[in-house]
C-alpha cells in the first residue's frame, strides 16, 4: 500500500472558512505543498491580504503576517529586507492587488523585491459581497454593476500579468487556472517556479491564478468552473509572460 495523495504539512489542521466550491482552498493547498516540497516551511513567511483570504494566516503552517488592504507587497518588502534568508510570499486577491494595492505591487515588482506573490483573480470582490472589481469582465453582473459592467463608464478589465510583465524587476510572471485538474497541476508547477526564482535571488515572481467565486457569481461550484473556462480564459489568456533567461 502506498499513499498517493495526503494532506500536506504546509497546511495547518484548521478547516477553511471559504464557501463550498471556492477554489481558494485548492490554491492554499498548492502553496502549502510547494513550500513543503522545497523544504522551506521553517523559513517561509507569508503575508495575508484583506479580502476572503484575510484569515490565510490561520491556514498555512508557517510564519504569517497580516497587512493593511493592498499593502501586502510593502509589508513583504520590509520582512524580506530584515530577514533576507526568509522565503517571503504574499497571497492576494484581485480586489486587494489590482485595485487598492496596485501601487504597492507595481513598485515591489519595479524594485525587483525578492518576494513571491500568489495573485488570486476571481473577477469580483468576494468578501464584501460581490462588488465590481477592476478585473470584472464586461457584461458581468456585480452588486455595484447590476446591469453588467459597462466599458464606457468603468473601462476594460485590468490585465495585471501583462502589465507587470513590462517591468524589468518582475522576472517571473505567469497566469494559470484551477478550473480543471491539468490546470491545477500546471498552477503548482508555476508556484514552484516562482518560489525557486526567489530562492535563487533573481527578483520578483508572481503567479496569477484564475479562480472562481460561486457565491457572488450566483451559480453552482460546478457551473463556476465552466463559466471560468468559457468567459475568463478568453479575456485572460493563460501562459508564461516572463521567465528568467536561464530558465528558458
Amino acid at each position: 500500500m502506498a499513499v498517493v495523495f495526503d494532506r500536506t504539512q504546509g497546511l495547518a489542521e484548521k478547516q477553511f472558512h471559504y464557501c463550498p466550491g471556492c477554489t481558494h482552498g485548492i490554491i492554499h493547498r498548492l502553496v502549502g505543498e510547494v513550500l513543503e516540497e522545497l523544504g522551506v516551511l521553517g523559513d517561509a513567511i507569508g503575508v495575508a491580504p484583506v479580502g476572503c483570504s484575510v484569515l490565510a494566516y490561520d491556514y498555512f503552517n508557517c510564519d504569517m503576517h497580516e497587512a493593511a488592504h493592498g499593502r501586502a507587497p510593502a509589508v513583504a518588502t520590509g520582512i524580506k529586507r530584515v530577514l533576507p534568508e526568509g522565503v517571503v510570499f504574499t497571497y492576494q486577491g484581485d480586489g486587494d492587488l489590482a485595485s487598492i494595492g496596485t501601487a504597492e505591487i507595481i513598485h515591489a515588482a519595479h524594485r525587483g523585491e525578492k518576494i513571491t506573490t500568489i495573485f488570486v483573480n476571481n473577477a469580483i470582490y468576494g468578501m464584501t459581497g460581490g462588488q465590481m472589481a477592476p478585473t470584472t469582465l464586461i457584461g458581468q453582473k456585480a452588486t455595484t454593476a447590476p446591469y453588467g459592467r459597462d466599458a464606457v463608464d468603468t473601462g476594460m478589465p485590468l490585465r495585471m500579468s501583462e502589465m507587470l510583465a513590462t517591468i524589468d524587476g518582475a522576472v517571473f510572471v505567469e497566469r494559470t487556472t484551477v478550473h480543471n485538474v491539468a490546470g491545477i497541476r500546471k498552477t503548482k508547477k508555476a508556484i514552484k517556479k516562482a518560489f525557486e526564482v526567489q530562492l535563487a535571488g533573481l527578483g520578483f515572481g508572481i503567479v496569477e491564478i484564475l479562480s472562481t467565486c460561486p457565491t457572488n457569481w450566483g451559480i453552482t461550484p460546478v457551473e463556476s468552473l465552466k463559466w471560468l473556462e468559457e468567459n475568463m480564459i478568453p479575456y485572460y489568456p493563460l501562459g508564461n509572460f516572463r521567465t528568467p533567461e536561464e530558465g528558458k
Binding site: 502506498a2 499513499v3 498517493v4 495523495f5 500536506t8 482552498g25 485548492i26 497541476r185
Partner: peptide, 14 residues
C-alpha cells in the same frame, strides 16, 4: 483529491 478545495480526500493504492 487534486480538485477538492477543502482537502477532504486522501488516496492510497492497494
Amino acid at each position: 483529491a487534486t480538485i477538492c478545495p477543502d482537502v477532504v480526500i486522501k488516496i492510497e493504492t492497494i
